[in-house]
C-alpha cells in the first residue's frame, strides 16, 4: 500500500449487529451478524479476501474499505 493512495477509495462492505442500520441506499453491501465475535470474524475474512482494511466507527460498525 502506498503512502500516497489513489483518490478512489471504496467502501467494500459494512458489517454490523444493528438491524436499524440496514437502511436502503447504503451504497455498500451491509452484512448483519448476530454477535460481536461473528462481526470481527466476518470483517477479518472479508478484509483478507478483498485486500482491504477494517475500520471501526463510533457506532460499532466495522467498515471494510480500500484505503
Amino acid at each position: 500500500m502506498s503512502m500516497n493512495p489513489p483518490l478512489e477509495r471504496r467502501i467494500l462492505a459494512i458489517v454490523t449487529e444493528d438491524p436499524a442500520l440496514a437502511q436502503p441506499g447504503a451504497g455498500a453491501p451491509l452484512i448483519l451478524v448476530a454477535s460481536q465475535q461473528e462481526k470481527e470474524m466476518t470483517a477479518t475474512l472479508l478484509s483478507r479476501a478483498l485486500q482491504a482494511a477494517v475500520l471501526e466507527l463510533a457506532n460499532g460498525c466495522l467498515v471494510v474499505a480500500h484505503v
Partner: peptide, 20 residues
Amino acid sequence: LGPSLYVEGAYMMNVGLPAS
C-alpha cells in the same frame, strides 16, 4: 484511542479488529 492508533499525539490509522 478506541480503534485509532496514535504515535505521540499524531493520528496514524484506524484499526477495526481487536486482534489486530
